[in-house]
Design a protein around this nucleic acid. Structure first.
Length: 578
RNA sequence: GCCCCCGUAGCUCAGUGGAUAGAGCAUCCCCCUCCUAAGGGGAGGGUCACACGUUCGAUUCGUGUCGGGGGCGCCA
């Protein structure tokens, strides 16, 4: 099995040699583009115009020199010099015809590119607090991160998918408290439920669960729970913190049970939700372990050793302003508790110490202000902050009947990822989430995602796949019968267009990986499906001429492969029937 | 106030230092005796917000202006 070398990269090699011959002392990047107009050939090279400036010669002269220096190739039909100095290359049909069988023989490797050089790359995504069901905002991060990780793997990286579990913070304590208060009510101990505690029905469900397992083992007197607690109306946050403190004191060692129960339930729910969504992780990394193993102490000590930490107002500060941040940040509060940021520093130091060559953090766009301080902390710790790339994902807004679907996080009244999946299906959800550039706000049209019409790009692409499956089923043969097909018979313009498109798949993968932009795959697949539908309308596949029939079947079988592989990158199914 | 994203066809959005800027929807016209019409072909529709720079060349890069969206905690 030989690696696939696209016509584009083979032609590029020719131009690199030509440029070297014409201008040995100048380095010019040869970047062939596919012209918009068919009359400009298969590829256009603009190197002569760039070299023209460097050599102080007329670009068209340089272009002629390059054409003269171009090594002979059996792929090239002819070249011509056009416009201000473009070199247009016209390929023989044979250059494209071979693609069909190359796709079939390269099996499950077509699309692989060596961009990553087998480097170890970690993609951390979702990482939502396990304090309740995932909502549609998390869904976008999940779909984006999972697709990106798949793309990077195909582009030659060793990919490690990780979820950072915030199991150590105040939010988890609030969840544990919320659960316990609901549980106490079941025991007959009524404590007013704070408005800023977790309101969702899932909290009550967890209380039911604990009560069913342990009856009133964790019951404490309501009067003790609210003892010495500040007024909820005037000091809601203090009220909550005091309730948590009382819960810890009254429950003693049992507090860990309630806390752990809530954590396991919510994390389990989150994991199930994501698994059903086709999103899986290699590691679920616990924040708590950073505290317990002393990694935070160690990381802060590392910063202190380098002189980037100081004390003020009883708190410990990281001098992030020395690294481009707009203000210094607290790492340990007056009360001696590390901030979330301190854990984040330790976490990122740990990631690099685990030996990853590159780190990708997928964050909600609201966290963009954190980039300078996290990168600054890495630099301050003597590490290479350039290994870290933060991919920001903007918010998704749902639209139903042309109206914005409301999302109030406060009252626990938000649309969950599970609701969305149930409403539009996993395939449409995965696809729509990555259809926009990640750094762009996403308007998620629920009606469109649900519609089974040609307005809906998911169905358009899946339909292309189903059509091919249907034709191949009518034919009745097996794919291996097609490996010897004489693809030289593929000369129809629609056939050549589809062949060219197939050859572009590796480039689409490389581009999506380089730009951390899996939406490029979605757009590629739309184009590929359009080419297939165009061919379907123009040509009959199951023709009497056996040679032509096999050639065409080889072409669409190859197309089916690429559709499958592309859809798999996005976590979208490729049904045989629709 | 500071920071981030965006401004491309009526709408939703791709694209990108190159030649005549694309797709889907919407509008109008056409195509099923045939492997799935969930499809295909065609027409109209644009000062790529504006200005000034950089460049052989700018929708793309830079600066500014205007307009839209979002974010700013000893929360996580």
């Amino acid at each position: 099995m030989t690696a696939f070398v696209s016509p584009k990269s083979r032609i590029t090699t020719l131009f690199v040699e030509a440029a070297r011959a014409v201008a040995p002392d100048h380095d010019v990047a040869i970047d062939l583009e596919r012209p918009k107009q068919a009359s400009h050939g298969d590829f256009a090279c603009n190197a002569a115009m760039q070299l023209g400036k460097a050599l102080r010669r007329n670009p068209r002269e340089v272009a002629q020199a390059m054409v003269d220096a171009l090594p002979a190739s059996e792929l090239v039909e002819k070249t011509e010099i056009a416009g201000p100095g473009f070199i247009n290359v016209f390929l023989k049909p044979a250059a494209w015809q071979g693609i069909a069988t190359q796709v079939l023989t390269s099996g499950d490797r077509f699309g692989e590119v060596a961009l990553g050089g087998n480097a170890r790359i970690q993609v951390e995504f979702v990482s939502a607090n396990p304090t309740g069901p995932l909502h549609v905002g998390h869904g976008r991060g999940a779909a984006f991160g999972a697709s990106l990780a798949n793309v990077l793997a195909m582009a030659g990286y060793q990919v490690h998918r990780e979820y950072y579990v915030n199991d150590a913070g105040r939010q988890m304590d609030i969840l544990a408290l919320s659960t316990w208060l609901r549980y106490l009510a079941l025991c007959g101990e009524f404590v007013p439920f704070p408005a800023n505690a977790y309101q969702g029905a899932y909290v009550g469900a967890m209380a039911d669960g604990i009560f069913a397992l342990h009856q009133d083992r964790y019951r404490r007197a309501a009067a003790e729970v609210v003892a010495d607690v500040p007024d909820a109306a005037t000091d809601p946050e203090g009220h909550l913190d005091a309730l948590i403190a009382n819960a810890r004191r009254l429950l003693g060692a049992d507090y860990a049970y309630v806390h752990g129960y809530a954590l396991e339930e919510q994390l389990g729910d989150c994991r199930n939700d994501l698994t059903e969504f086709g999103v899986t992780f290699d590691t679920w990394f616990s924040e708590k372990t950073l505290h317990e193993s002393g990694l935070i102490d160690k990381a802060v000590e590392q910063l202190r050793k380098h002189g980037h930490v100081y004390e003020q107002d009883g708190a410990l500060w990281f001098r992030s302003t020395a690294f481009g941040d707009e203000k210094d940040r607290v790492v340990r509060r007056e009360n001696g508790i590390y901030t979330y940021f301190a854990a984040d520093i330790a976490y990122h130091v740990n990631k690099i110490e685990r030996g990853f060559d590159r780190l990708i953090d997928v964050w909600g766009a609201d966290h963009h202000g954190y980039i300078p301080r996290v990168k600054g902390a890495l630099t301050a710790a003597g590490l290479d902050a350039d290994r870290l790339t933060v991919a920001l994902v903007q918010f998704a807004v749902l639209y139903r009947n042309g109206q914005k679907a409301s999302m109030s996080t406060r009252a626990g009244e938000y649309v969950t990822l599970r609701d969305l999946r149930a409403e539009v299906g996993n395939d449409a959800a995965r696809f729509f989430y990555v259809l926009r550039k990640s750094d762009q706000h996403l308007d998620f049209d629920l009606d469109l995602a649900k519609s089974q019409s040609n307005d809906n790009p998911v169905y358009y692409i899946q339909y292309a796949h189903a059509r091919i499956a249907s034709v191949l089923a009518s034919w009745g043969g097996v794919e291996s019968d097609l490996l010897d097909a004489d693809t030289g018979r593929l000369a129809h313009p629609q056939e050549l267009a589809l062949l060219r498109r197939l050859a572009e798949f590796p480039e689409a993968v490389a581009g999506a990986a380089r730009d951390l932009a899996p939406h490029g795959i979605a757009y590629y697949l739309k184009d590929l499906a359009a080419d297939l539908h165009g061919l379907y309308a123009a040509c009959q596949f199951l023709v009497d001429d056996e040679e032509l029939r096999l050639a065409r079947l080889a072409l669409i079988a190859a197309t089916r492969r690429v559709l499958q592989r592309g859809l798999a990158l996005l976590g979208v199914g490729a049904p045989d029937k629709m």
